[in-house]
Computed example of a mutant assay.
Amino acid sequence: MNKATFEKLKNFRRTLHQYPELSGEEKETASRVLEFFKEIHADEVLENLGGNGLAFVFEGKEQGPTTLYRCELDGLPIREDNNIKYKSTIPGKAHLCGHDGHMAIVAGLGLYLKENRPKKGRVILLFQPAEETGQGAGMVVKDNKFQKILPDFAFALHNLPGYEKNQIIIKKGAFAAASNGMIIKLKGKNAHASHPEAGNSPAEAMSKIIVALQKLPDAMKKFTMITVIHAKLGEVAFGTTPGDATVMATIRAYENETRELLVHYAEKLCEQIAKEYMLEISFEYVEEFAATHNHQEAWEYGNQAAKNLNLKTKHIRIPFRWSEDFGHFSIHTKTLLFGLGSGKSQPQLHENNYDFPDEIIPTGVNMFQQIIEQLHH
């Protein structure tokens, strides 16, 4: 990558960093991406894809596969604590996951495709909304416009702190966990605090549920995890015995089927405790992330790309516990999500002093370029 192109992508990334938008609100970010792509002249532009999503389509002259390269538009509802000139200008919102850097990489791929159209098949650059809530990929897949560009392969990367800069972290099969948020609501009966026996407080049942849920994975054969993230009992009213309670937990597993099984067992366990205390119980589910599964064939292209570029590659054996909504594409097509090392001393993702390192942008662009070379030339 020449210096002028790198400076252009760096400046674009830093502009995006200054104006983060949350999941589902990425209108301005999408406008900035559209503006950047004006000079690139894609063969087709799909707007409002699954919300604020954008897809840029590049057609080859010969028959061939359709491949998709995805990045994310959204930032996080976290205050940034960095002493940098391009710090977030929006209070309480920041690009602390590196989606600004991922967008710069896919924008760099756009600049490459402007000069090097695919010879065969079709290349799609997707700027996806709402990754952080786990909703965006699913909404894109369900969008009728997406049916026109169904890919044979989908590729994505995520920067990974804790690994050397420019190192490629790759794995066949399960790469990132399936997860979802579980909300458990208990309903008993209010009473005066001086006569608790006249009501039915869910306090004890709530306590049992909190302890029992987190121990439940011990009984599972495969890796699973339940983390209680929030609990609420009644209201702050010292004259009242509480009548309702809410427990919230995140459920994780490396496979979608194992997660579903864990959800089933968790519900049964909670229902049993609620019955014991004669409480009504209900469940809600939010932020559902499918497991990200790397297909053997897609993995071969990614692995070969890293070899062609002589990049240091780490073949991991155990999947990551975090979730990525790229897993929704894994259900429908052959996918590869790989890691791009962003520095051993780099703050972790979602920490308020994290900032995507610009110097790894060329490696991300080069990896995707190499995959395109293999599939479209």
Rank of each mutant, 00 (worst) to 15 (best):
G173R: 11
F175K: 05
L186V: 05
G162D: 06
G173S: 13
A174I: 08
A191M: 02
A176K: 13
N180P: 01
F153M: 03
G162A: 08
I149G: 01
Q147A: 15
H158E: 10
F175I: 08
I149R: 07
N166I: 04
F155P: 02
A198Y: 07
L150F: 14
A176H: 09
P196R: 07
A174Q: 15
Q167L: 02
S194Y: 04
F146C: 01
A193T: 04
F146P: 00
N190E: 15
K145D: 11
F146H: 07
I149A: 05
D152G: 12
N166K: 13
F153G: 07
K189V: 06
E197W: 15
K171I: 09
G188R: 03
I168W: 00
P151Q: 11
S201W: 03
P196N: 03
A193Q: 06
S194Q: 02
I169H: 05
K148R: 14
D152E: 10
L157H: 07
P196T: 02
Q167K: 12
Q147L: 15
P196I: 01
A191R: 00
G173K: 09
S194C: 03
A156K: 02
K171W: 06
A191D: 01
K165A: 09
H192G: 03
P161L: 11
G173P: 09
N190R: 11
A177H: 09
A198M: 10
I149S: 04
F175N: 04
K187R: 14
K172T: 11
I149W: 11
I183L: 10
Q147Y: 13
A177D: 05
F146M: 09
Q147R: 15
I149D: 03
K187Q: 15
Q147S: 14
E197C: 05
K148G: 13
P161I: 08
N200S: 11
S201D: 01
K187W: 05
N200F: 08
S194I: 00
I168A: 03
I168K: 00
D152N: 14
N180H: 10
M182G: 06
K165W: 12
A178S: 14
K171Q: 14
K187S: 15
G181M: 13
E164D: 09
G199A: 01
L157D: 04
K145I: 03
A177S: 15
Q147D: 12
A176W: 04
I170A: 12
K187A: 14
G199M: 01
M182D: 04
F155T: 05
S201C: 10
Q167V: 06
A191I: 00
K145P: 04
A177L: 10
P196V: 01
A174R: 15
S179V: 01
P161S: 10
H195E: 14
A174N: 15
N166E: 12
G162P: 05
A198G: 00
I149P: 02
M182V: 09
S201G: 05
K185P: 00
A176V: 02
A174C: 15
A174G: 13
F153A: 08
N200E: 08
A154D: 05
Q147P: 08
